[in-house]
Amino acid sequence: MSTIIIAVLGAIMIAAAILAVYQKSLLSAIIAAGAISLLASVIYIVLAAPDVAMTEAAIGSGLTTIVFLFALNKVRKQDKDG
């Protein structure tokens, strides 16, 4: 059972990773990158590692995404200002 869950989540993770690389919109790419971490944390829970899962969910999909969004905002502003 857990093998099936992990295989499905892994397939979605690979799809999200490809999306993050080939997506034209940077915002969608950042969201896809955050989704990878979220799915990874679900896999950690399936593998009975809740400590790692909490770290991955909080840092990988939470704070990293926010930092990337701030950075994207800053880069866009600099582009506009010239």
Binding site: P50, D51, A53, M54, T55, A58, I59, G62, L63, I66
Partner: peptide, 25 residues
């Protein structure tokens, strides 16, 4: 709660700190 109960339940200093930081965000 997460970092105070680090020795009893999953989680700990890092996780609790990150949760607090995301609250501030």
């Amino acid at each position: 709660y997460i970092f105070m109960h680090g020795h009893l339940t999953p989680g700990g200093g890092f996780q609790g700190g990150v949760v607090m930081a995301s609250g501030m965000v």
